[in-house]
């Protein structure tokens, strides 16, 4: 598929990954919520960077920052973290 479109495979793996995290942290919904929060902050900052392109040159939240936040959240859940790394653009 073209780089501008999300392929069904990417969509499916995102769905099953979100589902996996949700199920893994059924007893700790705060961890799942914090994960969603990190993703939303990342997305929001990416949008702000796009809108202000040519401005002060801020790059928003980097993939490294996202990864380290998720790493501290998923401590001891190495499989989840490894899988998350597969979604990151420069992992």
């Amino acid at each position: 598929p073209p780089a501008s479109e999300t392929s069904p495979v990417e969509f499916d793996s995102a769905i099953s990954y979100v589902n996996k995290i949700k199920n893994r942290f059924l007893d700790h919904p705060e961890i799942y919520r914090a994960f969603l929060e990190i993703l939303h902050t990342y997305q929001k900052e990416q949008l702000e960077v796009k809108e202000s392109r040519g401005g002060r040159g801020s790059s928003g939240m980097t993939e490294d920052e996202v990864f380290s936040k998720v790493a501290s959240l998923f401590k001891g859940q190495e499989d989840l973290l490894a899988e998350f790394g597969q979604f990151l653009p420069d992992a």
Partner: peptide, 27 residues
Amino acid sequence: SYDFTPLDSSAVYVLSSMARLRRASLS
């Protein structure tokens, strides 16, 4: 079966966009 809230769906959206960017950066 998937019981997704709007928040879950937007997480799926962010993750699949990340995967797409990754593919774009690898190709």
